[in-house]
Design a protein around this nucleic acid. Structure first.
Lengths: 232, 232
DNA sequence: TGTAAACTGCGAACGTCGTTTGCAGTTATT
DNA sequence: AATAACTGCAAACGACGTTCGCAGTTTACA
């Protein structure tokens, strides 16, 4: 035992973000696992049983080890969630070539995002945490900025528009995964005349497709085009 | 002890929603607390220290009792969250009178929602759970349908539009409460030329106000007006 | 080559959480 | 008076994220 050990081998409060931390040092035996294997196991669990099933114990069990062992590779569960998110965002590659209108390209990117939320529904529970962006997220962001290059407006507006696009896509994704979940059980529906009147009205045509596209188009053009004409 | 007790006094798996459950039975001593007092204490805690601070133990301590005692009034923490949400939604009253354009009234309702998210930021963490709507939520919904009465489109489209409005407002609210939180720490920014080019560009005018209003206007008119002309 | 430092895995524990349980006491019904 | 339905509460349960200590392994350097 040493009097003043430089490191206990465990987490200290202020560490660099995981993106710049090396996977392992230069000494000691080869690790039995890898960040990638852990993240893959966690994503498989989340895809199959939801984010709540991604406990340190469950992920560790999927790799045949104990929960505490994972902390040789990660500093916290949040780290794991960040890694999962960035890896999923990486599935947005390859980015489509820019051809024709930038708006159409952005809408295409939005549809890609929507599809990603479909294959990894747990992303909806994870993206709202305040957390540093990862390298794949940064690359996606860079790509969006590239697509928006011909648009003449402040950078801040482009940032806002990209964030809002992601947000709106997440709203649509949530609607699809929830699928009209909310019920009126136990409530006095009759006390709300406008609601019952609306329900008794002929339902009209079914909600059309391409709603996401149209929404994104009007949102992005509203945020980016009419931008330069008015200054508050 | 009875052989076949009709009720243990505790939660059974399939219960009616809390909205239709009476606060107390007709026998036994008067309860020391009330649903309202519990919900008020929980909201005070959430307003002050965030939703994570709303643990059963903390709420109980604020009322001078133990965690287990709360289960005489609620069946679960989710119940408490539902009650908190509905009570907060009740603060949207009184609803503004409908005067003039329905679109302007809806935008006004959206601004009210945004303000509510400002006074109760924890609502952002709570609204995404799949959960039954409460009486105040139902009343707010009814009011929106009333405002949208002059709009001639299927009811489902109105429902979608209201949900999307709430969602977009929540996105704006989240942006305001997060305040540009995401950092590029530990990432190789230089490897993304479009980003650095965008940053080196003159920043232009600051993002204007009334962005929420303009977004809501284009969103709602896009979802409700151009609706009837095209059917997918 | 020997030794110390830096690493490895792992089992056991800590504190917190939501929730359940058992029990003693209180009130309304019959 | 007796019974059934309620009340509050302390203690416990199981699961969670995380920490700790220890024994063993590999590398760097004298």
């Amino acid at each position: 035992m040493s009097d003043a050990p430089a490191s206990t081998g465990h987490a200290d409060p202020d560490r660099q973000p995981i993106w710049s931390r090396p996977e392992r040092g230069s000494r000691g035996p080869a690790p039995a696992h890898s960040r990638d294997a852990i993240v893959a196991a966690a994503i498989a669990l989340a895809d199959a049983e939801g984010l709540a099933a991604v406990s340190m114990r469950a992920v560790a069990a999927a790799l045949g080890t104990g929960a505490g062992s994972l902390y040789r590779y990660l500093t916290s569960r949040d780290d794991l969630l960040d890694l999962m998110t960035d890896r999923a965002v990486g599935e947005l590659r390859p980015y489509p070539q820019v051809e024709g209108d930038w708006l159409e390209t952005m809408v295409l990117l939005g549809r890609r995002q929507l599809a990603l939320f479909g294959t990894h529904p747990w992303l909806l529970d994870v993206i709202h945490r305040p957390s540093g962006i990862g390298p794949e997220g940064l690359a996606w962001f860079d790509n969006c900025i590239r697509v928006l290059e011909p648009v003449r407006c402040p950078v801040a507006a482009k940032f806002e528009a990209i964030a809002m696009m992601t947000g709106v896509v997440s709203l649509f994704a949530r609607r699809e995964s929830a699928a009209g979940a909310f019920s009126f059980a136990g409530l006095d529906l009759a006390a709300h005349p406008h609601l019952v009147a609306a329900f008794s009205q002929p339902s009209g045509p079914a909600p059309r497709a391409n709603l996401v596209e149209r929404t994104l188009r009007s949102l992005l053009s509203g945020l980016l085009i009419t931008e330069s004409t008015e200054v508050g």
